[in-house]
Amino acid sequence: MRTDEELMELYRKGSRDAFEELFARYQGKLVHFAFRMTGDQAKAEEAAQETFLRIARAAFTWQPKAKFTTWMYTIARRTTLNFLRDEKDEAEKVPIQPGEENEDGSPALQLAGPNSLGPEEMAWSAQIQERFVESLQRLPETYRSAFILNRGEGLSYEEVASVLGVTVQAVKSRIFRAREMLMESLSELLP
């Protein structure tokens, strides 16, 4: 099986099949990533599609030395943030806090609900997913991106650092902060 980087090289030489293969590999991941970032299915679809278009448009600027997924998520994150900014400009209804590296956790989102179950134990329902998504949207974008890229997309700290353009230590700190804030806002659902 060809690597992502080999497929990119083939696409740059004009292979449609190569791009079709990349699309098949990452369409789900990009839609999931955009949905985790935005919490909106329609925006996730648009952002994922726009990400693929940007990848295609920028294919000739891609450096074969770079890991494809790192490059792809860098584009995906920027694209998704543009969608969120557009929405904010239009309706100003999504409060995204300016995530500073040393910032303390914001006031927790108080969720109603009697259950106190861990995701591994509880039956995953649409309602519980909605609460997780809502809590994620309350995180500062820098925390949210780091946490989603690591836990949701499976990138290492080093890869997350590359996508976000920060140090590994900064990633470690952001992910820890994100965890603390989520634990607080989802306290009623967690064990």
């Binding site: 369409q27 999931h32 949905f35 985790r36 599609q49 278009l53 994620l136 989520l182 634990m183 967690l190």
Partner: peptide
């Protein structure tokens, strides 16, 4: 335990890839 739970929860969040997603993208391309 709670830290593991929030990580597992985020990993379970998924969007949906609609049926016409591929065709729409390749038509634009």
């Amino acid at each position: 335990r709670r830290m593991r739970s929030v990580g597992a929860g985020v990993a379970r969040i998924e969007g949906e890839v609609p049926a016409g997603f591929r065709d729409a993208l390749f038509a634009r391309m």
